[in-house]
């Protein structure tokens, strides 16, 4: 019996499956990627520390880019180069697929938000200049350590995701965060910018420095036509605006008569728009 699932549904199911793969790779008690790294390279931080999402902290190294006095920290753990080197280079080569396909901290609020009807959600698209805000926050986060201490883990959505995974897998210690300012992050990330935000990825769109850096790398290089990105064919477009509606990061502006713009500084390469497009006007690949 042939499957009745639409390509969009199959794409979302595949991404949901990879959400669990992401949890298994990066989050304790599994953290398989870091355990493998530690096993291959004994003597490294991954082999000699508590292994969880902090083993390859992705957020702090991005902040260190603007703090020369922190450069020596990079020598303590090779995994710190993941967010400042590996992911941006991968984004240049393939677009920010990590954000759209593997990052559990982005996927969890997105899929959770599908439980809430759209009429209860706020849609930033068309109301808020998302890209300037995103990179404004990014600039602010890079500069903030010059006037205060580095912004701590309570702020980080990766940490909050680790708290959830730990709790679900039987470790109740992370519940202590409820008594800290971390609960503010949890509510903003999961409720305000997640459950009640169209697309469910408000944190990714506005506040995630890792997403901002990888999207910046992808966006700046999107003019090179040979690099694979989500591309739009104006002649094939039916101007139905389905792509704009399904995009979880609100990266698509669908105007009249096939005038569709894919915001490469926001796109996370999830391919929902490509799979949802009824006329095949959107595709992932190099420019024809």
């Amino acid at each position: 019996m042939p499957s009745r699932a639409t390509p969009l549904t199959r794409n979302r199911l595949a991404r949901a499956g990879l959400f669990f793969v992401g949890v298994a790779l990066f989050y304790a008690p599994f953290a398989l990627a870091y355990r493998a790294f530690g096993a291959i390279f004994p003597g490294t931080y991954a082999a000699n520390s508590v292994v969880d999402v902090h083993t390859a902290c992705m957020r702090m190294p991005v902040g260190w880019l603007a703090q020369p006095w922190m450069y020596s920290s990079f020598t303590t753990n090779a995994l710190y180069f993941v967010s400042i080197l590996v992911l941006p280079l991968a984004a240049v080569a393939f677009s920010p697929l990590f954000c759209g396909w593997l990052c559990p901290a982005g996927a969890f609020p997105e899929f959770a938000s599908r439980l809430i009807p759209d009429r209860f959600k706020f849609d930033l698209h068309g109301r808020v200049p998302i890209v300037p805000l995103r990179y404004g926050f990014f600039a602010g986060l890079l500069l903030a350590p010059f006037v205060t201490t580095s912004i701590c883990c309570s702020y980080c959505n990766f940490t909050q995701m680790q708290n959830i995974v730990s709790f679900v897998t039987g470790n109740t210690a992370p519940l202590l965060f409820i008594g800290t300012t971390g609960v503010v992050t949890m509510v903003v990330w999961l409720v305000v910018l997640g459950l009640f935000m169209k697309g469910g990825r408000g944190w990714c769109m506005l506040l995630c420095p890792v997403g901002a850096l990888t999207s910046l790398a992808s966006g700046l290089t999107s003019r090179f036509k040979r690099l694979p990105r989500v591309r739009h064919d104006t002649e094939a477009c039916a101007s139905c605006a389905t792509c704009q509606d399904v995009c979880p990061v609100r990266a698509i502006d669908a105007g009249e008569e096939g005038d569709v713009r894919v915001g490469q500084y926001l796109c996370n390469g999830c391919m929902d728009c490509v799979k949802a497009c009824p006329s095949g006007a959107l595709r992932y690949g190099s420019e024809r």
Partner: peptide, 15 residues
């Protein structure tokens, strides 16, 4: 003296 309580509120307040 860790400063984390205030520092963690800062970006949230800014947001």
């Amino acid at each position: 003296g860790c400063g984390s309580c205030v520092a963690s509120i800062a970006p949230m307040a800014g947001a």
